[in-house]
Design a protein around this nucleic acid. Structure first.
Lengths: 290, 290
DNA sequence: TCGGCCATGAAACATTTGTTGCATGAATGG
DNA sequence: CCATTCATGCAACAAATGTTTCATGGCCGA
């Protein structure tokens, strides 16, 4: 008899289900319907909730070809494991060559990035913006590719809070600024894997100084997220391609600036108007010929 | 220090981490980085993999306010429970005013930006990338908020073509570089309304010099698009808020770099590897082992 | 109706789990 | 410099886990 493809333990279970004793069917259906609990809670616990005997779970596992409940649960656990690899990497690898390969690459990239944006937590950004609003001074740090995000944030915030915002290391070696952090100030650190040592140092200095630390990172486990008061997550690896995507980080930065401006109220608006007037007077912009 | 929101056990862990003993920090990071295994495998098992004492896990849990490892794991398990699907639910919910107006602002902004990304023309980017691939030298210009996009592009392109890419004005006043443009070279100008005079001057200089001009702009009528060989459009004003959005421009820049790299083939890959090896040797990055 | 079979629940089992007491060694403060 | 605290690994502990055994009861064929 041909073994059905062992695609997932859940499907094996489903296939074997009809040929099982009545009680084991019950238990089997319970497992299928609560597979998350099956992987996390204990056998006895499940038995109590399912109103069945603990032994039934062991028997169920053996009935569908496992050595015991432990092995079945291990299989379920592995099946449930969050995508360890980027789901797009396969697509990127298998992408066909030819004149349209590049177009496909771009489209995939843009799609993935567009899908990632709504996953950003608006609440976390709003809370972080409140911290920025209260901060007496705002430091911004980002290295290598994240430098671009840091500079945009610096630019936008300085439009309405010019003398309270600055990039770490803007006026000398970074190390000089690290000692300048004070409680009541906010430090924003942007980074993703692989993390630069410099960014981690900034985060640690901010923490030690008692300043409010805001991390814009790709993971809660990021070094600069340790001890951070706010962590704003984006998906750097979500898009296919060779470099991680900064689109999410940039979107966060822009939202952060927008909300902080919004919180600033009339005062912020006035500062922004002043700045614009000054730029116009210096004829920075092309005059509108319409 | 103000008590931050105890949203998830991972956040509590992250916040408490820096104030913990050294060994506890180690296991704490391990838990944060492997939270799925933390919920499914046994404490001793984790200890073996983390190379730590099993007791450290119990102590870690107690150190951050739990009665023991069991309780911490239960919290992690609940936080991971899939039932809370629907990051989109926030979008569907009716928008309230008041303290949550900021959240509304952010979600609207992100939605609009996500919607704008797929409108970018992949073909135009692919064609522009081919021009970049053929160019003997690449100049990049962006001013004010567009400076951040310019620098990202500069950074990514230099990863695999270090001595052929540079920002206009990087080594002196912009005007000096304007005279250096040559046929066979490419000049990328990034800008949106209101357009800065400097960016328009760069575009005009590139045109007069016979260099390939690539404009990343918000409109075909943009001054830097006049005479451009390639115009890559993004929607700067598509999102609500006070500042125009650069997300689209950044996405274009990243795609441009990715495709150019792709066209570079084996040679580009080798250069990138060299660069990465050099960075690793300089221990720029935090070592991966946790 | 009887006898074998199997499903089923309860209890006993060995193992593994999370926890805690203790000794050691390093760091800290007077 | 010593006294003290504290972090840390080891080992023993009690509790909980998954498994197995056993007795029971229902089912079907002879």
């Amino acid at each position: 008899m041909a073994e059905p493809a062992k695609s997932s333990p859940l499907s094996e279970l489903r296939i074997a289900l009809p040929s099982l004793p009545l009680r084991l069917q019950e238990v089997g259906r319970f497992v299928a319907a609560n597979d998350y609990d099956a992987t996390t809670r204990s056998m006895r616990d499940l038995a109590a909730e399912a109103g069945a005997d603990p032994a039934a779970f062991t028997r169920l596992a053996k009935a569908i070809g496992y050595s015991g409940w432990d092995e079945l649960r291990a299989a379920l656990t592995e099946a449930r494991r969050p995508s360890q690899a980027a789901p797009f990497s396969a697509r990127a690898k298998g992408r066909r060559h030819g004149p349209n390969a590049d177009v496909t690459l771009i489209t995939d990239k843009l799609e993935a990035e567009a899908a990632g944006l709504p996953r950003i937590s608006a609440h976390a950004i709003a809370n972080a913006a409140r911290s920025l609003h209260d901060a007496q001074r705002i430091w911004i740090a980002g290295y290598r590719s994240c430098r671009s995000v840091a500079e945009l944030l610096n630019y936008e915030l300085r439009l309405f809070r010019p003398e309270q915002v600055q990039i770490v290391g803007a006026s000398g070696p970074d190390d000089l600024d690290l000692g300048a952090f004070r409680p009541g100030e906010a430090v924003i650190v942007i980074g993703f894997m692989p993390y630069t040592n410099a960014s981690v140092r900034v985060a640690q200095a901010a923490y030690r100084a008692g300043a409010t630390l805001i991390a814009i990172a790709d993971s809660l486990a990021a070094p600069m997220a340790e001890g951070a008061d706010h962590v704003l997550l984006f998906e750097a690896a979500s898009s296919p391609g060779f470099f991680p995507s900064l689109t999410g980080a940039l979107a966060i930065a822009q939202s952060l600036a927008a909300v902080t401006f919004s919180l600033g109220g009339a005062a912020a608006r006035k500062r922004l108007q002043d700045t614009e007037a000054r730029l116009a007077a210096a004829s920075t912009y092309v005059s509108e010929k319409g």
